[in-house]
Nucleic acid binder design. Structure first.
Lengths: 208, 208, 208, 208
DNA sequence: CATGAATGAGCTTTCATTCAT
DNA sequence: AATGAATGAAAGCTCATTCAT
């Protein structure tokens, strides 16, 4: 019966958004597992019944929020790309890109952290993050292949792209989630050197 | 008060071990959050009362198991190190080390995956993994500094060590937790190239 | 969070009352400590979830019930007062008042007995009974002071009021809770004589 | 089987006493319900198995302790009596006796408070306190009857004795358990006046 | 005799979800 | 459409007591 409502009018859209906003705030504040559907409904100023007419269940709400989020995160990650000219791509451009990635985590760090935890555990969430990873790896791979002429030749561009992606992602997590006494710029420098060493065969920047 | 039993006799040690074994199996099978203390006790063939006389609560059991585990994991990660001579450390030695790290994940992959998820969420677990990371980063940093003579000079050895650690860790997670169509050896090759590019300034191996 | 429901509609009020009634019956039957929240819910024909949406916990239920009860008990204790004229207050009026107090215990003797036991032990319950005692002592003190003209002068009217209160209370407990072979009227007579001896300086009644 | 040990040798007596002492301290500290048999055994430096070979169960321990205690309490209550000459018993002697009763509560006030709470609830404890009350009431009644010549004649000496006992007991509880801003001496004065008014027909003391 | 490991019934409480109004 | 009262499975944990060693 009770089919899930897909809001078409303004009021419905507002309500759905209010729920999403409330959930985002509460997830950040007390964790996903620590937040109950009642709390979300209350914070959104909506009855629990309404909540369940907009979202089949808590899990579906989370999935929907996450799909939205990764879209935005992806855009934020790659927005710096537009301003770079590939033919002259150098170690400092890598550094800029990396800092752009770090920045993208400011969008909703707690939500990212919380959901990424579930990637190890929840198959639906894993699927979303895996799909996202695939997109980013392909993007990196595309860049490598497009610029093969200016770079050290690469045996397995997909493996290389994956390794670069994983390195950047985990260093971003260290910087943004786990914390470290090392500064973000120092991390970005080392990371840029490492990737430059691989792709550009040029480690002079590290020597400087 | 509720003094936790520290078993001294054979029987007590057996019991504690049986609980730990049962927990390990169940955590892998249905996840940490999906496993109840009653289930663990039942699988261990022990009363729930016994469970709670050996462990203050589920959390404490987990912590104790994890402390044990990371110790073993650390040993497994670095065991390949003994057979290497630093003066001649080359790209292929890095590759061997990396495959050794991948291998260390076979110890208890599901347990590692499940607990690492909680690193984002549970402060006690975060502390353990952070401590472990520190240990490994220091080890890498030590290697870098010891072999400074044979390597490309490095500006900030701690940041470099952290970046290398993060890269290897996340690629291992991709290989062992998230899954990918890329083979482990291809990943290890790309990773070895990347680190060699940074430290050895020598990417010919990638070109071969 | 776990916002406790304050029922506004008929259904909710019914439910809350059903819980209260069931609790009252079970407390009398098997004691407060011997009654579980599940039993109460079951007897009230309500789910355990409902129980906990009306009362934060068993303790809070008890407190709410007790606050209600002492209010009614107080009214019952003093209702006989209205018909007395102070200027002519005599030993027999005291006797009437005392029997009125005894009677007030018929409201819910088991509940009174059970909760009064906790006065020695539970701070919240102690607070309620202490507040009630204060109210009654003030009432007695007021009567003494209002009628100072017709009475033996009293040095410390508050101490005297407390002593009278305590005497009447404990004799009522003997009559209603602990039991004795002495009849209630005999106790009331002795008590009236004692108080009359103190306030009216007139113990002839005892001789009669 | 496991019949309860009645210790005849010194060591056994010591052990039993150590358990009793430990229980007394813990009952005072955390309440009777808040104390577990394990805690008692631990504090007594005895195994839980030993505990149960000296006492059939926690309840029996409590009963045994209480029987002992009321004996001592009774002695303490009446010790002031020896020094009084009945023929000349006056209001101030009553006051002295009352202060003696108050004092007797210093023996183990928390234990008295805790156990007296159970009088309303636990039949075995009720029996002990009822028996004790009977003893004291008889003692008072005896005094009244012995001194009938010097006193206002009394209709029902048993009822009078009960009323006096109840008054004194409850005022002692107010002073020692519930607490009040009225001083103990003020309470004793008012109480002495009240009893004197009943027995001695003499309230001049109150007037001074 | 002493020990303390083991037992397990039973308690309180939470929360995702449903459905009558 | 919106509401929120009602549900109940299920979790974590305690503690008096027993009995094999």
């Amino acid at each position: 019966m009770s089919s899930i409502r897909t809001p078409r009018q303004k009021r419905g859209i507002d309500t759905k958004e209010r729920i999403t906003k409330a959930a985002m705030a509460l997830f950040a504040e007390r964790g996903i597992h620590g937040t109950t559907s009642k709390q979300i409904a209350k914070k959104a100023g909506v009855s629990i019944g309404s909540f369940y007419s907009y979202f089949k269940n808590k899990e579906k709400l989370l999935i929907e929020m996450l799909e939205d989020y990764v879209e935005n995160h992806y855009d934020a990650v790659w927005q710096a790309l537009g301003s770079l000219r590939m033919e002259t791509l150098g170690r400092n451009d890598l550094r800029t890109l990396i800092l752009g990635v770090f920045n993208a985590y400011e969008l909703a760090p707690e939500f990212h952290r919380q959901t990424h935890a579930l990637r190890y555990t929840d198959p639906d969430i894993k699927r979303i993050y895996d799909r996202e990873r695939e997109r980013e790896v392909r993007q990196i791979q595309f860049l490598i292949e497009q610029n093969a002429g200016h770079m050290v030749p690469v045996k397995d561009s997909r493996a290389v792209a994956m390794v670069i992606h994983n390195a950047v992602e985990n260093v971003a997590h260290t910087a943004k989630f786990y914390g470290t006494d090392i500064s973000e710029t120092a991390l970005a420098d080392a990371l840029a050197d490492m990737i430059a060493g691989l792709l550009l065969g040029n480690t002079l920047s590290a020597i400087k």
